[in-house]
Design a protein around this nucleic acid. Structure first.
Lengths: 193, 193
DNA sequence: CGCGATTTTCTGAAATCACGGAAAAGAATG
DNA sequence: CATTCTTTTCCGTGATTTCAGAAAATCGCG
């Protein structure tokens, strides 16, 4: 690996995290390298710096593209493709959430919806169905939230993030203004809690 | 697998999702089974229902315990240990987030903090350091958020979740009330965006 | 077209991981 | 303290995943 110690450390760490995340080590490393790079890099350079094979880099890059975490670039008078990680950290974060949602949450919602169509055939199934219904509801709410966040202009989003420990006071404020749903707690609490 | 079709389907799906999440299929299945079960189950029963070996179940159960996703129970006059998934869905969700935070975010923060102590030795490293600093800041903000959520009473949390598309209006309200940080956008935007 | 440059796909080897069976350890009971 | 029931650990095997190298495909350009 031909990297400065600072960069190498970050790259190795991301590789490690990559494996815990279901994506593999190489993909994590390639992303880390691009994330730290001020310029777009070509595949060959990525291979050299990380000490991986060309083919390995190829699949990693394709995978990262499918996650929308990197984009290709072209330079005039150069056939090679260059890859770059978008800079805006918030955007990156949001993209990751969106992609995970698409790949994991949505299929789960479908499964639940279908499952909920069937009539429970026993007490055991009845309970199971209740649980799935509760899960379905929670996920849908979370999805709504996500959608709100997706639609929010970045500046606003950063405000929201920076809100930190003022969040609680904000909620108090909201309650006083009657903005919070006046908790139909009865109906949902016996399911959720 | 000795399960009703409804339950089997859910279990298989969770197993599938488990493998995408870095935890393995068996663990996902065991959790799914417990999640749907109205009563605590003993290891033996889990093995039978899922058609897995005793040892396999043992490691899965231990792993789930380390994630605080299930707890052990004892019954009088019964030596066996019984396992149960907590019911409160919100609590489950929060636990997952907390554990992932502990296992993935915190080590990353440490790494970043240490890395940020070193002086950049080149233009390349200088940029890399900037990127890490920005990442560090974002993660810290997210962590603050998480902490707010952790401290929030469950009822309040559910309100917040149910807020859905009123979130934007809430933010407007907050801005008017002067609760939002008056965006020191200049300093952070050239790094983040 | 055809040629060099580049990327993608294929294939087999190596590494890792998942899992079951057996042995070991631990806990309650008489 | 032995017996029995239960859980845990260890280890071998089989499956899956990762990866490099080679072959194939694609692309730009004369």
């Amino acid at each position: 690996m031909k990297l400065t110690p600072l960069i190498e450390r970050f790259v190795l760490h991301c590789g490690e995290m990559g494996s815990r995340w279901g994506i593999n080590r190489t993909i994590g490393q390639v992303y880390a390298l691009l994330f730290l790079s001020p310029t777009a890099l070509c595949a060959e350079e990525i291979c050299e710096r990380l000490g991986i094979s060309r083919s390995n880099a190829s699949v990693a890059l394709r995978e990262l593209e499918s996650w929308r975490l990197i984009r290709r670039e072209h330079r005039p008078n150069d056939r090679r493709e260059f890859y770059r990680a978008p800079e805006d950290l918030w955007l990156i974060f949001r993209t990751m959430i969106e992609e995970r949602h698409r790949r994991e949450v949505e299929p789960t919602l479908s499964m639940l919806r279908e499952a909920l169509l069937t009539e429970p055939a026993s007490a055991e199934e009845f309970y199971a169905r209740e649980r799935m219904a509760a899960m379905h509801e929670l996920i849908e709410q979370a999805t709504d939230w996500l959608e709100q966040i997706r639609l929010m202009p970045p500046a606003r989003l950063r405000q929201l993030l920076r809100l930190g420990r003022r969040l609680l006071s904000l909620l108090d404020l909201a309650e006083k203004a009657g903005l919070l749903p006046q908790s139909p707690l009865e109906e949902s609490d016996h399911v959720l809690a």
